Simulated scan of single mutants.
Amino acid sequence: MTTEDVLLTADTDGVRTLTLNRPKAYNSLTVELKECLLAALREAAAAPDVRAVVLTGAGKAFCAGQDLKEHVGLLQADDPSPLRTVADHYNPIVRTIVDMPKPVVAAINGPAAGAGAAFAYAADLRIAAASANFLMAFANVGLGPDSGASWTLQRLVGYGRAAELMLLARTVQADEAKQLGLVGEVVPDEELAGRAHAVAAKLAAGPTVSYAKIKEVLTAAAESSLEDALLAEDAAQTVLGSTADHREAVEAFVAKRKPTFQGK
């Protein structure tokens, strides 16, 4: 399998779909795949024609997390690279997803474990296939959480549930995931790709500058006081109030027509 094969990229309707493509290995994360994914996310963030991103997996799994076969082989060879992968790969991937100035939709097509689940938690929206499930498996291999899971998971489900899911390493099926707030929607397996694209395409046609600011203030507010949150909101509104998209939306409202957003 070549470097280009481990991650597939497709563009339609302003949406860039990134597909983890190691289906025989449940899309587990090798160094090669992590480097390809990080580069692809950074490229999508910078590309003006990409207005929304879908992250999904090929085959029956979303992502099984770290490829343990590669990991143990490197450890046995006394290669120090496994100890650097959090700093070199996982942290930058999650930062890029969270800081992406456009919406990211995770289309969870099957099992999502460890770092794979954490990537989904970092997305803005999560849509799961009925066959999907989530597993915080770090404790099973004697490790703690990484890829931002300690930050994202408890913001989705609260500290108590996050601690339960991490300490007990309990698998959460799609329906329970929706009840807990891990995902916003569960659809039949065969409808997932279409539904995820439809949601992303709707976002891509919207005021993407506004979406970027919404993400920015939400992230900042997660760690700020009310006063700081109010200041951040005020700063964002000042910027957004002068955008072409805001003017278009107001004019369209007055004219009773549908607005056409340009992301400007």
Rank of each mutant, 00 (worst) to 15 (best):
K202R: 15
T17H: 05
Y211G: 01
V72H: 08
N91G: 04
I127P: 03
K178Y: 03
A255C: 03
R126M: 12
K102A: 07
S225N: 12
A118T: 10
R51P: 00
A232C: 11
L37W: 01
L55A: 06
G14E: 11
V254L: 14
A132N: 01
P111S: 09
P188E: 13
G181Q: 15
G158D: 09
R257C: 03
A115S: 10
T2S: 10
E251R: 12
A77V: 02
L33W: 00
Q154V: 02
R51S: 04
R155F: 02
T238P: 01
V53W: 04
K264H: 08
E185Y: 02
T12S: 12
A196M: 12
L218V: 15
A137P: 02
C36A: 15
P103S: 13
V72Q: 10
D79M: 09
H197P: 01
A162M: 10
G142H: 15
Y211H: 15
L135G: 03
P82D: 04
P80K: 13
N21A: 10
R155D: 05
A205N: 10
L192G: 02
T219E: 11
M136K: 08
Y26N: 11
K102D: 01
L240G: 07
G114L: 09
F261E: 04
V217I: 15
A47F: 07
K178G: 00
E43H: 13
A40N: 08
E190F: 00
A174I: 05
F138S: 14
L180S: 04
A222I: 06
A112L: 10
T17P: 02
